[in-house]
Amino acid sequence: MQIAGSKELSEQVLNQDLCTVCGACVGLCPYFKVHKGKLAKIFDCDLEKGRCYAHCPKTDVDFEQLAQALFQQPYNGDPLGIYRRITAAKAGERTGTGDFQNGGTVSALMTCALESGMVDGAVLTDSDGLLPKPKLVTRAEDVVKCASTKYMATPAVSCLNEAATDGKTNLGFVGTACQLTGVAQMRLNPLEKSDFVDPIGLTVGLFCTWALDTRQLMDFLSTRVDLKTITGMDVPPPPAEVFIVKTGETVVEIPLDEIRELVPKGCGVCPDMTAEWADVSVGAFEGKSDWNTLIIRTEKGEQLVEKAVAEGYLVLDDFPAEGLEHLTLGAGNKKKRAKENVAKEEK
């Protein structure tokens, strides 16, 4: 991959409206910052090469290099990425209860990782009112407080970058595909900084078909509900085709087509539904809303899952063959769409 600087990043990503606000370029320098779900370049920077460009998931990503670095094997193009096995999972009793979107598997894994000392901290996504807000959590009991899907683009990697700058290592990270692609690229130390230390201990990926532009969603919702009263959001499995906003007393249903208008352009060129560059990836389980799909990709991921099951944080179940077929189809469709959209972009 040809590494360039922030000028090229602006030209190729920001000015093309492809940024999904993953935060990979934030917290490394004084120039990129995020405010209310939107990335801003504060000043021009004339460095020819920058980590901003090198870490960005929307510049050219070298899948081969990432596959070798993370899985020690060639990239195979599987719609689900490189993985060891897929299983159904949900939180066990020891995880405690939280506002889980589905089975609470992510909370279970991170609680276990922190409790057992597998990681020394974890970057999760909490909320500040409605706004998603990345947060470094060091106590296992705080993990469940960050549960639930936020549906909005979150600069989670910025929090990881800042923690790394503070010298923190062996950190857990939970994020979507764009965020994990950024993290994976960061771990390669592409600018060959002599003082680089990999801050990552473990990564948990979240399935993602798209996120929503924070500001557009706020503006959209504010015309329908009092933002302060919103308690949660959900996209029920097909064929519902609705986006659900829960307030204290009511449930507002919004046709999904209207919501899709708020998807950043950058999500359209993303080929990765299942967060391929993580140790494990977690998503919904079609047909059983209190379970999750869990993809185990690395040995480290395997160790974590085994430990979580053994210590009662996590419960597993078989993953049906037709589920795998469905999942592969969905992930493959996302890749196809991305390819088409990239081609459109290039025109």
């Binding site: 910052k33 405010h35 209310k36 939107k38 990335l39 801003a40 504060i42």
Partner: peptide, 9 residues
């Protein structure tokens, strides 16, 4: 002012 306006975006 520059920071606020740029971040406000």
């Amino acid at each position: 002012i520059h920071h606020a306006l740029t971040l406000d975006n």
